[in-house]
Simulated scan of single mutants.
Amino acid sequence: MRSIKSGIGIFSITLFILVTLGAWKIYSPGTQIEKLRMAEASQPVFALIYLAESLGYFADEKLEITYDSYTSGRDALNSVVSGKNDIATVYETPVVLQAFNGVELAVVAELHNSTSNTGLVARKDRGIHVAADLRGKRIGVPLKTNAEFFVSLFLSSHGIHPNEVTLVPVKPNDMAATLKGDTVDAISVWNPNLYKTKAAFSEDEITSFYSDVYTEISVLALKRDNADQRGEAILRLLRALKRAEAYLKENSAEAKKLVIAQLPPNVQITAPHVWDAFSAELKLDTVLLSTLQGEADWLKEAGSFSDKSMPDFTALIDTQYLNEIYPQAVTIE
């Protein structure tokens, strides 16, 4: 009888432990749905986001994302700063501008990089055949954007002083029509508007310029206080994007179709033509840090924020989340 009672007691304790552990697993915070409001700029370079959504990787992580679409990363980031959204897909330049304005941001991952997604298109009938011919010419560009930064670096690399050209402010969507007119001789912008501008001319009418002196980078950015509170959601987001990156590498043709299908109709038209102009990679590297610092130096030298101190970009880049789930993708301290 004593041994039977002992056996029953052990069984009861074991059952209690299993039930308790089971209950903990069921009600663990890790199994609860996390939600994020994402401001996205509807461009092919954000392919990893669209892939993770299409393939159900966010759902697998119990991460529910509500999308808010914008025509530029600048506006997407502004919505995060205002508190309307939690996280934004954005190019590096708006991040630098917000940092100068004193906004405390956290960049948790890069989404793409490219040396040929932003470029310059010039009209040959205006006497522009090589870079040196840009002297004395008018270049249309969206001011205070990565395109203007590209122009600055490109001109400098060819020994052309900024005072030797005239920059004309032009909206990205107006590039093709503006270059067709008489107010500029060349334009600089990113895809898809770069492609649209080139497509508006025959090949013998224009000269196109690209340069590896500038690496275009897009990132995922949040306000610092929000990032500190949403660590679990960020980890789930990055885990899903890591899977999307692996899928892209193994199934590039199918991935391309899935991404393009999720883009707005007007972007779907140009997306196939610009797909090979960028590399979708989840990482945090020294190229990002040097690009942010380089753009900040450029802005101060150009007279913007001359009264502001240089932002601490090493603090702005938050490696802890990506380092936890994908340490080999983090090459910045």
Rank of each mutant, 00 (worst) to 15 (best):
M1G: 15
R2M: 03
S3F: 03
K5P: 00
K5T: 00
G7I: 04
G7S: 14
F11P: 03
V19Y: 12
A23T: 14
W24C: 07
I26H: 02
Y27H: 12
Q32I: 09
L36V: 08
L48Q: 06
L48I: 05
Y50S: 06
Y50R: 09
L51A: 11
A52L: 04
E61V: 06
L63S: 03
E64W: 07
T66V: 10
Y67R: 14
Y67D: 05
S72E: 04
G73V: 07
L77T: 00
V81M: 04
S82C: 03
A88R: 03
V95K: 00
L105A: 10
L105N: 04
A106V: 07
V107M: 04
A109M: 08
E110W: 04
S114I: 02
R123Y: 05
V130K: 11
V130C: 08
A131N: 03
A131M: 13
A131F: 04
A132K: 15
A132C: 06
D133W: 15
V141T: 09
L153C: 10
F154A: 01
F154H: 05
S157D: 15
S157H: 15
H161I: 12
V165D: 02
L167K: 10
V168Y: 03
P169H: 09
V170L: 02
K171M: 07
A176S: 13
G181S: 14
V184T: 04
I187K: 01
V189F: 05
P192L: 06
F201Y: 10
E205N: 14
T207M: 10
A221I: 01
L222Q: 06
R230M: 13
R236I: 04
L238P: 01
E245F: 09
E245W: 05
A261T: 07
Q262F: 08
Q262W: 04
Q262D: 11
A280Q: 01
L282D: 01
T286H: 13
L288H: 09
L289K: 06
L289I: 14
L289M: 08
D297H: 12
E301K: 10
K308L: 13
S309A: 15
M310Y: 15
D312I: 15
L322E: 09
I332R: 07
